[in-house]
Design a protein around this nucleic acid. Structure first.
Lengths: 329, 329
DNA sequence: CTGTTAGCGCCTTCAG
DNA sequence: CTGAAGGCGCTAACAG
C-alpha cells in the first residue's frame, strides 16, 4: 500500500505538505501542489479514509436504521427508495453510510446499541419506520447521544430533526381529489395501527374534510395490513359509498375484496407505490417521493452535524391517480 | 471519549493488556481479565473500531454493489432481500458493510472506482445484478484487485467466487411442474435480455425439456420487461398453449395481456416474488430465496478473505405455485 | 503472564 | 510557504 509518506518522498517534500495538498489547504504554493499531485498520480496513491478519520477525529459516517423484517415483503419498494435516496445523497455530500436493520438489535438493551454505534464511529442516525412501540429506539433518540433525523415520526429535540410530509393535509387532499369525480355520503376509513406515528395525523385529515362536507365517517383499524383491510372491506363495504385507506397495502386489500364481492366503490391509498397498479384499474393515492424524502433527511443530518439545532422539515406531497398503464415500463 | 488508555489506568495495567483482554487473547490471567472488564464497564468504554482496523491492518469491511436505478421499481423486493440477507449475515460474522449503487459511478473510469473502494478500505465486494454490458465492473472483477463474490453471473477466478442457482435446471423444473397439471404442445418462451448472464442458461433449460417431451418451442426476447412481455403475449399467445417467462415481471405482463385478451394459458415466472400474487390467481414460479442466497454470498466472501480460492457455489432452488391468498398476511 | 515500545496512515499545531 | 514532531486509539512484537 502506497502511503502519504511515499508520495512525500517522491515529490521531495514533507508528509505534512502532502497532507495539506490532499485536504486543499490554502497555504501551499501552486508549484509544490502540482509536484505533489503528480507524485500521487504517478504512484497511484489513494488516501486511506480510515486513517484520516482516526487522525482528524472528524468522522463523516452515518447509519441508516431500518425496520426491516428478514422476510421480504411486497412493500420493499418504499424501503429501497429510502435507502437509495440516502446513499446517493450521502455520497454526494461526502458522508459514509452503513445500513442497519433494527431487528438485529431486537432484544438488546439500549446501551448495547449505543456501544455498537459508537464503536463504529457513527456521527449521525437516519431512522425509518419508527413506531411508538420501539421503546429502545425512541430512548436512543431522546438520549440525544447522536444527531438523529427521524422520518415519518414527529420527534424533535436539540439534536434531532424529523422529516415528514403534512400527513393530515395529505389525507385531506387525496379525499378531496376523489370527491371531484365521485360523490360520497358515507366513507369507510381504514386507518393504520394505533402505534404508528402518522395514524392520528392522517385520521385528523379525513375527519376534517368529512366535517366540512357533511360526510358521514366510519373508522376501522386496519393495522396497515392488506389482509385486515380486506376483511374490513368484506364486512363494511356495503354500508359505505367510498373507501379511504391509510396505506397502499390496505387499499390493495380493499380493492381485492371489492373485486371478489363484485361491487364498486372508489378506493384511495396513501403511499403511491408502483404495486398499486396491480390492484385495480385505477386508484387515487398520495404520491410520496420516498427517494427525495430520504435525500432531504441526509441533508438535514448534515445540517445537524454542522451544529444547527433540530427542527421539523416538511416536504411537499402530491396527489395522483395511478392506473395499470402508468406502471407498465 | 474514553480510550483504552483510560481503562488501563483505571485497572492499573498496561494498555497492551487491555487490548489483549478486548481481543480475548489466551495469555491473560483470569484475575486481570476481570479487573480490566470491570474498569471498562465502569468507564463505559467502547472500543474504537476505526483505530483498531488501522492498527491491525485487518479490515473487515465489504461493499455491496447493486445495480439499482434511482427510480424505485416494483421488483425492489429482490434487491431488498439481497441487501438484508447480506447485512444480517455480515453482522453475524463481524463484517462491516457499506452499500454502493453502481449507477453512482456510471461514467467514471475503472481506476476511480478502485480508488474509491481502496480509500474505503474495502476488503471484499458483493456484486448483484451484473449484466454483460457492465464493462467497468467486469473489468473490476477480472482485475482481481479485490476479493469478489458475484451473484447470478458465472465469473470465477483466483479471487472471485460466484453464487447462483442452477439456472438451466430451475427453468427445466418449473416447466416440468406445470406440465404435471397442464399439457402443452407449443410453448411460448419469453426469455430475458441477451446481455444477461442467466439468459442463455435458462433458455438451455427450457430447450432441453421441450426436446425431451417433443414440445414445440417459440422463443421471443422480452428484455426482462413487463411491457415487452405483454406485447409479445398479445402477438403470440394465440399460437401457443403455454407461456413460460424468464422472470416474474415478464410473467405478470403476460398474465395481464391474457386477462385483457380474455383467453387462458398456463403461465410461469421465475423469481418467486410476492408481487406475483397480484398478477393473477395462480402462477408457477421458481422460488429463489434471495435472502439466503445473499447470506451465502457473504459467507463465501469470508471464505475468500481467509485465503481460499474462488469457486462456484450453487444454492438449492424450489418450484412453487403462488396464488393470491398465499401473499395475504 | 504483563509491560514497554513501536508503529498503522494521516492530521495538525508550531517553528522556521 | 514548508517541515518537524507529536499524537488519534489501538495492536503486535518483544522483553522482562
Amino acid at each position: 500500500m502506497v502511503s502519504i509518506k511515499d508520495v512525500a518522498k517522491e515529490a521531495g517534500v514533507a508528509v505534512s505538505t502532502v497532507s495539506k495538498v490532499l485536504n486543499s489547504y490554502p497555504n501551499v504554493s501552486e508549484a509544490t501542489r502540482k509536484k505533489v499531485n503528480e507524485a500521487a498520480k504517478k504512484l497511484n496513491f489513494v488516501p486511506n479514509a480510515v486513517a484520516s478519520a482516526l487522525s482528524s477525529k472528524r468522522v463523516a459516517r452515518i447509519a441508516i436504521l431500518m425496520n426491516q423484517a428478514a422476510q421480504a415483503t411486497a412493500i420493499d419498494e418504499i424501503d429501497m427508495s429510502y435507502i437509495s435516496g440516502a446513499i446517493v445523497k450521502a455520497k454526494e455530500i461526502g458522508l459514509d453510510v452503513i445500513t442497519i436493520f433494527y431487528s438485529m438489535f431486537e432484544d438488546k438493551p439500549l446501551n448495547e446499541l449505543i456501544a455498537y454505534l459508537r464503536s463504529q464511529s457513527i456521527a449521525g442516525l437516519l431512522i425509518y419506520g419508527l413506531s411508538k412501540d420501539d421503546d429502545v429506539l425512541i430512548e436512543l433518540v431522546k438520549s440525544e447521544e447522536f444527531k438523529c433525523v427521524v422520518v415519518d415520526a414527529d420527534i424533535v429535540n436539540e439534536r434531532t430533526s424529523c422529516v415528514m410530509i403534512d400527513q393530515a393535509q395529505a389525507q385531506y387532499d387525496v379525499v378531496n381529489e376523489v370527491l371531484k369525480t365521485d360523490s360520497a355520503s358515507r366513507i369507510l376509513y381504514i386507518k393504520g395501527k394505533d402505534n404508528g406515528f402518522v395514524t392520528e395525523l392522517r385520521t385528523a385529515g379525513i375527519k376534517r374534510i368529512c366535517e366540512e362536507r357533511g360526510i358521514e365517517l366510519m373508522i376501522e383499524q386496519g393495522e396497515f395490513s392488506e389482509k385486515k383491510a380486506r376483511e374490513i372491506t368484506f364486512a363494511k363495504a356495503k354500508d359505505c359509498d367510498m373507501i379511504v385507506c391509510a396505506s397502499d397495502m390496505m387499499a390493495i386489500g380493499a380493492m381485492k375484496a371489492l373485486t371478489e364481492m363484485d361491487i364498486f366503490r372508489p378506493v384511495c391509498g396513501f403511499d403511491g407505490i408502483t404495486l398499486m397498479g396491480y390492484a385495480g384499474k385505477q386508484m387515487n393515492t398520495v404520491k410520496q417521493d420516498f427517494y427525495n424524502i430520504s435525500a432531504t433527511a441526509v441533508e438535514e443530518i448534515d445540517r445537524l452535524r454542522s451544529g444547527e439545532t433540530g427542527r421539523k422539515v416538511v416536504p411537499e406531497h402530491k396527489v395522483v391517480k395511478l392506473q395499470y398503464l402508468d406502471i407498465i415500463r
